[in-house]
Design a protein around this nucleic acid. Structure first.
Lengths: 117, 117
DNA sequence: GTAACAGGTTACAACATTGTTACAAAAGAA
DNA sequence: TTCTTTTGTAACAATGTTGTAACCTGTTAC
């Protein structure tokens, strides 16, 4: 850990610790890392059905995860009045800054999964 | 996503996908990222009580997480016959290769928590 | 003999999360 | 008119996870 980070850690007030925990809880929810990773691969806005198909989970869970991401300002939701409905989800700039970490973490996961087969 | 990764994704057999999911589920368990991060900061072997204190969780949960990490070959557990007992946990080389991702992810989390106060 | 310590385990009740099923809206196609 | 589509939501039972409280080991100190 760098000295700057260490100092920041130590000087952090309770409310910031709560925010850190909050974010870690968010990121630790089921399928959350996958959703963020998938959306970061294709930088384009993505439809609900496409996300659902790629993470291979129920509508309920995907809808919940996307709502939580929206609540935290990590995705934007845009609905188009087509028939049938079209809804696009897009990562915010803040979420995009998480990309290097995600990519590096998934690379580790893929390598480990590979070598364990 | 790089072309190499993309190809690896597509050519992955079902069992590898299962391994990926397994790892993502592991990493998504409560306190797991924190434990890995903390142990990666201090590279030294760490005592159970120290880990427990730093992640601020119950013995039960910390013990469960450490056992899961050991099962996955990400930490080693070494018991010393001192009185009272001393047990040291240490990241394996494999787990240490996850460090850059973790550090970068926690930096993102800390920055976001900071700016949301 | 009993208190204290680290490092747990076990049982269990409370709580959280999941997927399933049913439903809805809106409009164009058959 | 009814079917189809996408994008969800609501209710609910099943399942999973958590912390708490009690207990255990082994040895040294009182």
């Amino acid at each position: 850990m760098s000295q700057v980070q260490s100092q920041r850690m130590q000087s952090m007030c309770e409310s910031a610790k709560a925010h850190v925990d909050d974010l870690l809880v968010l990121l630790s929810k089921s399928k959350m890392l996958s959703i963020l990773y998938i959306m970061n691969c294709d930088k384009e806005p993505m439809r609900f059905s496409e996300i659902k198909k790629r993470v291979n989970s129920s509508s309920t869970t995907v809808a919940r995860r996307l709502a939580e991401l929206e609540d935290h300002g990590l995705v934007t939701r845009t609905a188009f009045a087509t028939v049938p409905a079209t809804v696009m989800y897009e990562l915010t700039d803040d979420a995009i800054t998480l990309q290097p970490s995600l990519e590096s973490m998934f690379e580790w996961v893929l390598n480990r999964a590979d070598s364990s087969v």
